[in-house]
Write a protein that binds this DNA or RNA. Structure first.
Length: 584
RNA sequence: CGGGGCGUAGCGAAGCUUGGCAUCGCGCGUGCUUUGGGAGCACGAGAUCGUGGGUUCGAAUCCCGCCGCCCCGACCA
């Protein structure tokens, strides 16, 4: 591809709206353009990178027996009503009516459709297992998009679905995907860490997210550098020390005027926050009031609370009226004397005797509150939010908290969708069984952005070989001084374009094509753009390089530079199978 | 949805406080010179100042509404 013909433009100045390096560089180098909030066009360069990422994923999915297909972006709402998600999911899902006044939705994901296909086609255990995947557009009307391509509203995702006879089969499919993902991210040049995660809106029993550490990441990861424990903070267990043996002291009401927060209470009484109990009130989607009790120095983890209490429709902070209706007083609240509420007590608070807790009366607290004697719990469970420095739940080593970006996820769905939609097969026993499913996603655009995050310097992008839009950026200089420069550049460029695709670029037309900066620009402009665009190899041909014996080859990522004789350059770029001229 | 910021030529910005000819750099076009690290000179094109209303002799500038974008938080496979 001649750069003079390429549809792109580099920007000399950083766009005002871009903060993350990947966003800034993809914009400046002409890979993407923004259409609206969370909506991006992929320009030819960005499209080629995305297609190469797609190809890596395709190869690894095929390697575990995946079969590629394609499912629609527009779905009838009735299908989503069957699974129950039509009403469960909020404004994040786009809905509209077609001309026949039928309710339709724009796909956020494809569990329903794949399950519909299964109930149509699979009837016997002999047809299982099967692993299906596709690359398809999703739309999620996020409350807030951010970070360039990191969090967008419309995006292409590889989603795959495993369909097995039983839990054993699902387990095999799950770990097959786990392995495939490890290989995919390694090939993409990403250090992705699998962490235990919440099952969220997918439902299911086991889930991992593959996370790339990044200061702009939206997720918080709890990591142990001693034993390797890793979890999303949403689900990270907190280690609870053995319950205290201290004897219970008599309950005592004390006046605490104006002390409505733990900090004020602790300061007023001159005690540590850890000697108090904190009550937090939530209203569940089903209308229940949930009262969560944690030790005063800790915080409630809403995901863990929601899972522990078996809440389906999510949690929102309770209103003052709702709290009072259950016999409690905001600011001076506790579970003592509470009624008509589900009380969930964290293990740490349950095991700490004689806490100071609210008296459910304005201006008063209670000393020496003890679970069992003074209030009851519907449930004692870990609902504590993990913090940096906490003891690892596995090995007790101090934990670290890091930000991460989710580049992929794997979920055990079980029979959540097959049961709801009636996707069953006849087993060897002659009985109908629901198909046991798993769901596995990788967002393409987000991965492209993460690759740039991991592979750039102050000058620009430095693509890994596996995903670069073109392997080589040919820079010709001094064509007016030396006619051979243009002749040789044309020969190399045209020769590479005519060559058969390089091994590993199957299905990718023009896989051996190189980029040639044939523009009438000064050398400075050409070099600067070459470094910004980030092809793995920059090949310079000029009177000077010819005098030195050939072309100059620079490895973009390392800056390592060698002079390559013309014959070797031809062998490398035009004739198939020649290795790159230098190591890294 | 809460808090903050921004919207002026393709890009980046100044001008707004204190109303009075639309400004600068880059980029773009033409010509000449230049060609190993974002070249020089000359000429030139390009802006409903996000949008609607109001105040005023006069609004990019002051007032009100709306739209859009970014950041933090809430939210979120």
């Amino acid at each position: 591809m001649r750069l003079s013909q390429l549809f792109f433009a580099t920007l000399r100045d950083d766009p005002a709206d871009a903060e993350m390096p990947s966003h800034r560089l993809l914009l400046r180098a002409g890979y993407v353009r923004q259409l609206g909030s969370g909506l991006y066009s992929l320009l030819p360069l960005g499209y080629r990178v995305t297609k190469r990422v797609e190809q890596v994923i395709r190869e690894e999915m095929n390697a575990i027996g995946g079969q590629e297909l394609e499912m629609p972006v527009i779905h009838p709402a009735d299908l989503w009503r069957e699974s129950g998600r039509y009403d469960q999911i909020g404004p994040e899902m786009a809905r509209f009516k077609d001309r026949g006044d039928r309710d339709m939705v724009i796909a956020m994901t494809h569990e329903e459709v794949v399950t519909d296909l299964l109930r149509d086609i699979v009837h016997s255990y002999r047809q299982l297992p099967v692993r299906l995947y596709h690359f398809q557009t999703k739309f999620r009307d996020e409350p807030r998009s951010r970070g360039g391509l990191i969090r967008v509203r419309e995006f292409v995702m590889k989603d795959s679905y495993s369909c097995d006879r039983d839990d054993e089969g699902l387990d095999a499919s799950y770990w097959a995907h786990h392995g495939a993902y490890v290989r995919i991210f390694e090939r993409l040049g990403l250090d992705a860490i699998p962490v235990a995660s919440d099952v969220g809106m997918m439902g299911g029993s086991l889930a991992h997210e593959f996370m790339v550490l990044n200061p702009s990441g939206e997720d918080l990861l709890v990591l142990c550098d001693s034993c390797g424990f890793s979890a999303n903070r949403q689900v990270a267990a907190v280690r609870v020390p053995a319950a205290s043996e201290a004897s219970q002291l008599p309950l005592e009401e004390i006046e605490t005027p104006g002390a409505t927060t733990i900090a004020e209470l602790a300061a007023f009484l001159g005690i540590d926050a850890a000697a108090t109990a904190k009550a937090a009130f939530f209203t569940a989607g089903d209308g229940r009031l949930i009262t969560a009790i944690v030790r005063g120095d800790r915080d409630v983890n809403e995901t863990k609370l929601s899972n522990a209490a078996g809440v389906s429709g999510g949690l929102r902070p309770a209103t003052v009226e709702e709290i009072r209706a259950a016999g409690m007083e905001p600011g001076y609240g506790s579970a003592v004397g509470a009624h008509d509420t589900t009380v969930v007590v964290d293990g740490l608070a349950a095991g700490t005797p004689n806490l100071v807790a609210g008296a459910n009366r304005v201006g008063y607290h209670l000393r020496n509150v003890n679970l069992g004697r003074d209030y009851r719990a519907d449930l004692v469970s870990d609902i504590d939010n993990a913090r940096a420095g906490d003891a690892c739940p596995v090995c007790a080593h101090p934990l670290a908290l890091r930000n991460g970006i989710e580049v992929g996820n794997i979920f055990k769905l079980g029979t959540r969708y097959s049961a709801a939609l009636g996707a069953t097969y006849l087993g060897e026993d002659g009985q109908a069984h629901p198909i046991v499913m798993g769901s596995y996603g990788i967002g393409l655009g987000r991965n492209v952005a993460c690759i740039v995050e991991a592979h750039h310097d102050e000058k620009g992008i430095a693509w890994p070989d596996e995903v670069a839009p073109y392997p080589v950026h040919l820079v010709s200089i001094g064509t007016n001084k030396e006619p051979r420069v243009a002749e040789l550049a044309t020969e190399l460029h045209d020769g590479a374009a005519a060559a058969r695709p390089r091994h590993g670029a199957a299905g990718f037309p023009g896989g051996r094509e190189i980029l040639w900066d044939d523009r009438d620009e000064s050398p400075g402009v050409k070099f600067t753009d070459a470094e910004l665009l980030g092809m793995p190899w920059i090949v310079t041909i000029s009177p000077r390089s010819l005098a030195a014996g050939g072309v100059e080859v620079t490895r973009r990522a390392t800056g390592q530079r060698v002079v390559l004789p013309l014959e070797e350059a031809r062998a490398w770029l035009v004739e198939e199978g020649s290795p790159p001229p230098t190591g890294d």
